[in-house]
């Protein structure tokens, strides 16, 4: 009798343990995602807070080529205010992202801007990833469009830039695809802009 009683107590104890353990397990799995969501919400809150006292934006004019003529066409954009280097990078990123008004892209979409560095005398060194060259359609007209869409967009919006020098993967390059000389800096060509 005793032995049986002991056995049944043991069984009940085990059962309770099992129920508690499974209950804990269910609670753990169910509550897991909720907590994670909370953490993310908290983080987002933290990020937004310093931006709340309004990150300054300003309007810039970008230049895009068109399907129908040889001119560069202006298009307005808002970019975050920053140092000339950061603004220059953002302008180039917007050019790569392409037009919102149906103009053509002046750069291959795969190209990336690696860095912009502006020297004290106002030379902006703009360093692109190799896709700028590898994915470029080639041809004199296409090279001129790429170069002057960038140079005109940079120089008409950032007064600190007096001339633009192109780099690819951190190094000087002779040409984009065999035509226009990249060993020398460029200045804006307002005569290419549509009126």
């Amino acid at each position: 009798m005793r032995g049986r009683h002991k056995k049944s107590i043991k069984l009940i104890f085990l059962l309770i343990l099992l129920i508690v353990a499974s209950g804990l397990a269910i609670m753990f799995f169910l509550s897991g995602p909720k907590e994670r969501i909370k953490v993310i919400e908290k983080r987002e809150g933290k990020i937004q807070e310093p931006a709340q006292p309004e990150r300054l934006k300003r309007q810039v004019i970008l230049y895009f080529p068109s399907e129908n003529d040889d001119w560069l066409h202006p298009e307005k954009r808002e970019i975050a205010v920053g140092s000339p280097e950061i603004e220059a990078e953002e302008i180039i990123q917007e050019l790569i992202a392409g037009s919102t008004q149906g103009y053509l892209s002046p750069l291959p979409p795969q190209a990336k801007i690696r860095q912009v560095f502006i020297t004290r005398d106002g030379t902006a060194y703009v360093d692109f990833s190799r896709e700028l060259v590898e994915r470029h359609p080639s041809g004199s007209a296409a090279e001129l469009v790429t170069i002057y869409a960038i140079v005109n967009s940079l120089m008409s919006n950032i007064p600190a830039i007096k001339q633009v020098f192109f780099l690819v993967e951190g190094a000087e390059r002779e040409t984009l695809s065999g035509h226009i000389n990249l060993n020398k800096p460029f200045i804006a060509m307002p005569s290419l802009i549509a009126r």
């Binding site: 892209s105 007209a141 296409a142």
Partner: peptide, 8 residues
């Protein structure tokens, strides 16, 4: 010559 726009 080569251009971005095919009509050139």
């Amino acid at each position: 010559n080569g251009a971005f726009r095919p009509k050139a």
